[in-house]
Design a protein around this nucleic acid. Structure first.
Lengths: 136, 136
DNA sequence: GTCACGTATTCCCGTCAAGGAATATGTCGG
DNA sequence: CCGACATATTCCTTGACGGGAATACGTGAC
């Protein structure tokens, strides 16, 4: 599994995502995380293990406690992965614009000129609103 | 499950991530995706459904085919989610800078850029690497 | 050494999701 | 209407994952 997929899989678990978002406010020990999120300590340890294997957190033993913090590099990698998508839109829109300006009204039929507009009755899902997915 | 978690979960499946990365090069019909990735058509349809419910792709019926393309909004949302993490580092670095300027500043400029509770400078973290536990 | 504390690991179990195969739905051409 | 093509859906099985409970490990205090 690609590293990116492992990263996404780790973040795809709600409890783990909450842990990551909590650590966004600063490093925390295992017990503190469990307390803050209302989770049990063993589950938190398990989740932290997965997050660690995905390179998302690092641990620093401090006396008897183990303080976890976010691993910046992982988020940098995520950002550059995302960047490779941002450029897609720009490139495609530029290409479309150039094509239109060049007087090419005879667009090939297989040219995807379908960026904007119509959306068939399918996924209204968007972060920030609950998806119509069958959620238990 | 938060919408962000659903998005990450969708991308956390290797085949789905490959589909998304393929669609980065432009819209594709289901059969073309299956052919390009060496997957079977029903599985591709299932994955596309999940991606659609996560708001990551949209579909445009075109004759007998259904052409899928990336949904830009989902990636914008991901980017802003990531930004909220980037600011963490900046904030801390700013705080560090402010601290230096505020008078305690006779420190060398090559001060290790550590977080609130000092970090040893050694981030070999690459996605797909090892656990954070100190392998002794 | 012994104990208490914090954390990691193990085992068990229920659930869920992914792949395979078969089939249903939908759409176009004749 | 019918057949061919493209895609979606269903059923089934199996493996992985998450939570609960109990326990092992490591470290500091006495």
């Amino acid at each position: 599994m690609s590293a990116a997929a492992a990263t996404f899989a780790a973040l795809g678990e709600p409890s783990r995502l909450r842990i990551v978002e909590l650590l966004r406010t600063g490093p925390r020990a295992v017990g503190d995380i469990a307390d803050a999120l209302g989770l049990r300590q063993p589950q938190v340890s398990k989740h932290l293990r997965v997050l660690g294997e995905a390179g998302l957190v690092r641990v620093r033993p401090q006396a008897r406690r183990r303080v976890y913090s976010l691993e910046q590099d992982a988020f940098d990698d995520l950002a550059s992965w995302l960047d490779s998508f941002q450029r897609v839109w720009e490139t495609r829109l530029d290409a479309l614009g150039a094509l239109l300006e060049s007087g090419a009204a005879d667009l090939p039929t297989d040219l995807p000129t379908d960026l904007p507009t119509d959306l068939p009755p399918s996924p209204p899902a968007q972060p920030g609103a609950t998806s119509p997915t069958q959620e238990t």
